[in-house]
Each structure stands twice: as C-alpha cells, then as structure tokens.
Design a protein around this nucleic acid. Structure first.
Lengths: 335, 335
DNA sequence: CTGTTAGCGCATTCAC
DNA sequence: GTGAATGCGCTAACAG
C-alpha cells in the first residue's frame, strides 16, 4: 500500500504538502509541486478514496433502486442517471430489488451508513415496511415515474400519464374504435390510476362504456400480455383496441393475438407505453407513447444532488413531455 | 451524526465495547450487550461504513464495466452478478463505459483508489490504453464472455463459442442449406474469431464455400442487422441461411427481410445468439443459442471474490454450457 | 508557502 | 469482560 506518507518522504516534504499539491495545486510553489508530482509518479501513488471520504463524510455515491434489470425502459433511465452522475462526480450503486422489501430496506440503509449519499427510486413501494418508518425520516431521495407513498414529500420526475393515455385514446377513437380493453401493470400505483383515469375521461366523453371486466393484467411483462389476451378473447364482446400499459405487455399481446389466428391491427389494434427500442422492429411495429427515459434519469440526478447539497428544491414535481408514436399496430376498427 | 462515541456515553461503556457488541457479540457479557443494544436503538445508531472500510482497507465493492446498458443479455449477466455479490456482502458499482476508453480507465482506477476491490469486465478492450499498462499490474479482475488482451492472465467466464456455432451450422445444414452468410458484431474480438472458426470448420467439412463477402456487420445492434440484410440481399447469390452474432442483430435482420418482401424462414433462415427474452415472442420466434447469462454473472463473482481474498484460483478459464434453442426462424432451405 | 497538530469514526491491540 | 490507547489514510486548522 503506497500511501501519502511514503510519498512525502520520497519528496522530502510533509504529508500536508502532498495532499495540497493534489487537491489545490495553486497553494503550492512551482518547485515543490514538481518535486511532489514526481514522487507521486515514482511511487505510483493514488489517494485512498475511502480515507478522504471519511473525512468529508460524503461518499459521492448514489444508490439506484430498480425492480427489474431486464426491462430496457428502466435501463435507459439508468443510462441517464449514470451519465449525469459521472458528470457530477458521483458513482452509481446498483440496487436490484426484485421487488423484495428486504432488499429495498437493505439498500436504503446504505444511505444511513454513509455508504451512499442519496437514493433514486425507480420502484414505488417506499416506504417499504413499517421498519423503515424511522429510516424514511430525512433521506435524500428522488422518485422516478411514480410518487412515493409517504407523509414526507419526496420530489418526483414523471410523465404526464393522464394526458398520454388521453392522447392514445383519442388516437384510437379517431380510427373508429368502440370496444376497448386494457392490460395493466402493477395495480396499486399512481401510474395505474392516472392512465386509467385518462382513458376513462375520454371514453366517458364519447359515452363509451369501460367496465372492470375489460381491465386485466397485473405485471409489466410479456407473459402478462399473453395472459391478458387469453382473458380478453374469452369475453362475449371482443375488444377491437387494447391499451397495454407498457411495451413488454404489448409485445406479449401482439404475439398472443397472432397466435390466436387474428391480425394486428386489422382485427385488434394494440398500443403500448415506453417506446423501447425493439418496439419499432416487431411485426407490426408498435404504436406507443415515447417516454424520455434518458432525460428522466438525468433530471433525477440533478434534483437528488441538489437535495444532497442541501439546496432548496424549486418544485417537488417535474413532468416531462411525452410523444405519441404512431406506427402500424393501430389502425381502423374492423367493420 | 450519531456516532459510536455518543452511543458509548449513552450506555455508560467504552466505544470499544460498543464496537464489539456489534461485531462480535459473544465477546461481551449478556448484561452489557443488552445495555448497549438498547442505547444503539435509542440513538438510532448505524455504524459508519466509510470508517470501518478505511480500517479494513477493503470496500466490499466491485465495479462492473459494461459497454451498453440497454442490451438485455448484459443485464441478465449483471442480474447474476448483483445477486451473487449481495450474497457475499458486496455491492455493485455500475460502470457504463459506452465503449469509451477514458471511462473505462476512470472506472478501473476506482480499484486502485480503494473505492472498489475488484472489477468485472463485460467489455473486452482491456487494457484500454497505454496509460493503463501500470494499472493493469495486479488488479483483481474477471472477464466475462471475452478474453482480455494482456500479458497477465485474467480469469475468464465464457461460452464455448466454437462448439455453439458448429451446432448452429449443423442445425442449418440439416435443413439442406447451402448458401450461408453471417452478420457479425465487433470484429476485433475473441467471440468473432471463435464463432467464425466454428462455422468455417463445419462448412469446410461439407465443401461449402464461405467467402469474406458473405460476412458483414460490425456492431451488436438491430441497426447492424438491418444494414447487414441490405448488403446481403444485394449479392449475386442471395444466402438462404444467416448467422447473426446476437439476437439484436437477428431481430433487425428478420425485420429487414420481411420488409423486403421475403419470408422467414421460407426464403431465408435466421439464427441468433444469446436467447434474450423477446426472441421467443417476435414473429417468427428466433432460433438461437441460449447462453446461461445469469450463471455467468454468478460465477464471475465467485471467481473475483476469491481473487480479492487472495485465494489461488483453480483454473483461469471457465466454459459454461450452451443450449441450442430451435424455434421457427429456421427451416428447410428453399428449393 | 510549508510543517505541525489534530481528528474524521471506527476496530484492534494491549493491559487490567 | 472491559477500557484506554493507537492508528487506518487523509485533510483542515493553525502556526510560522
């Protein structure tokens, strides 16, 4: 272990001077600076990050809690987080929770133990358990996509889900659809409520019924899309247009519809949310709502870091713009 | 900041006793243990991770270098890494390099500065630059999928690419194909060479020509698959079977072939590598080679952690089994 | 501009 | 079984 002391001896100066040479070179004379830098090089010295962090009390690290690593939508968010974090001198600790409260708790505790300075929550079950009530006290935390259930207000970066689902509904209405259905993701969530409310508001304006039996699903997975179609095709009134609450669900739905011998969009139109990469390349390409995932990640870091620095935050809710991407999985209602 | 001293005062004992109560409770009498634990609870004390790590000199953290977060294959590996790391008490720092040598360098340096104890490389360009020659000296490091170019031998967890591509080639030969092509990923890589060698070996046995003009591509992306098809369809002799070097390329290829008015597999068979989730649900479902990504991640952690602990490693190369998944994107050669 | 001193929070000697 | 003292590696305050 080559430490600062060894370098100081090598350069014939004090350890303080070595430290200064590296942290604030302008406080050191040209001559000694050169001497020190040479010694640093000769010794192959790198300052021990752990030691500096103990002093400052800050780890310049943030934890990202994500329910599922394989969802490309989350990963695009994390890409934005990573980029922004690096620009600000922060590292990213990955917290794959798999939806487990114990794991969430464990990762959240890292902030309490100075292992990290703050938390970005891509899941939405915080505060996880009763055991975390204390812990939730004063954590620097930002939520992406989903508001956090807690007395304390945490900032949130989200999409205008209400408006986005209204846009999708109008898009499908424009094609003359009258029989709708939805395959949703996690039910106990803000997203679920807002998107459903958006759809309902439009259909009510048009006096089109939308019953509970037309809503199915429960997970953001391809399998949920397949199972959802199985259910919906068994209904007495088969829907001609289906809202899928993310693109994975939509991919499963398209797959199942085609497997059942029906066509997309001639028999059934399918629309999704997220605009993941592959959505443009399946058959048919998916009509979906583009979410600026990368930017959401970047903004989350901005907000979190100012929280960590104790700066007052301008607004606690940030709504990013969406974009309706019309592709070929939606079309005129069958006659 | 509630520190160990505050707790010791609250419990009326020394800081050493508090420390012991938490680290090795059996060295403390029942009575004082209870007293201390009560004080810990009352103060809401959590040991400062940074401080303990300075002492031990180990951060129990590993860095994962990944070229691209959106590739679901990598993310499955990282899922395995995360799981195994957590079981062993390690945290995972995410290093999204985007293929940039500067970033790779920066992340690799973290190990030198005690910010992390070791490195898992999912990319394969180490040692990144000349500047890293020193750095490469004695880094605990494991490579997944791809051997590292360096004098020093680093352990590697990989697939038997040679055998896997031979299996694919035999599969296609069994369907009577005689005109082959390949859309490859990164060219300067072990994977490229091994897979191509596997294909070549089988085709040579059958006296089937395989020229350089039948090999195209250069990136592991959907776009590369599309561009590859554009090239291959322009050849005088159109191939009837195409090896894609990952599923993303294959998805692009299938998309482009259908867009050109041809059918998969009736006109052209397409096979991939990786078996990412969505491959089973596109139209047609993809014939591909399943790589045990999750297990690869787990094994990588096993090997890395024993390296960190200074244990001698049994073997420096570990080859995991593959599985040929036959689906509907491959079929009889057109007559 | 530079060296000395002190201390971050904790864990590990070594005494008792 | 417990406490006092020491030091991890580094940086900040204070002298000079």
């Amino acid at each position: 272990m080559t430490n600062i002391k060894k370098v100081s001896e090598l350069a014939g100066v004090s350890t303080a001077t070595v430290s200064r040479t590296l942290k604030s070179p302008d406080q050191v004379s040209e001559a000694t600076r050169e001497k020190v830098l040479e010694a640093v090089k000769a010794a192959g010295y790198r300052p021990n990050w752990l030691a500096s962090s103990v002093k400052s009390g800050r780890s310049n690290t943030i934890v990202v809690l994500v329910p599922n690593l394989v969802n490309p939508f989350f990963m695009r968010i994390i890409g934005g987080i990573e980029q922004a974090a690096q620009e600000k001198g922060f590292s990213v600790l990955l917290g794959d929770t798999q939806g487990s409260p114990e794991r969430e708790h464990e990762y959240a505790s890292m902030v309490l133990t100075n292992r990290a300075d703050g938390l970005i929550q891509l899941d939405h079950s915080f505060p996880f358990s009763a055991a975390d009530a204390d812990l939730a006290g004063d954590l620097p935390m930002v939520s992406v996509c989903e508001r956090i259930h807690s007395e304390k207000k945490y900032p949130v970066i989200e999409l205008d889900n209400y408006a986005a689902s209204r846009a999708l509904a109008h898009h499908l209405l424009g094609y003359g659809h009258k029989h709708f259905a939805a395959i949703v993701g996690q039910v106990s969530s803000q997203i679920y409520r807002e998107r459903l409310a958006g759809i309902r508001s439009v259909l009510q304006e048009e006096q089109i019924p939308f019953e509970q039996s037309q809503i199915t699903g429960g997970a953001y997975t391809i399998e949920a899309g397949i199972a959802g179609i199985a259910h919906l095709l068994s209904l007495p009134q088969r829907p001609t247009a289906i809202f899928c609450f993310n693109d994975d669900i939509a991919i499963g739905a398209v797959h199942a519809i085609k497997k059942a011998g029906l066509r997309v969009p001639e028999d059934i139109s399918v629309v999704g949310f997220d605009n993941i990469k592959v959505s443009a390349f399946i058959d048919p390409p998916l009509t979906t709502v583009d979410q600026p995932a990368y930017d959401m990640g970047r903004r989350a870091v901005d907000v979190l870091v100012s929280q960590i620095r104790g700066e007052p935050l301008a607004r606690s809710k940030e709504v990013l713009p969406f974009q309706l991407i019309e592709r070929e999985s939606s079309g005129p209602a069958p006659v």
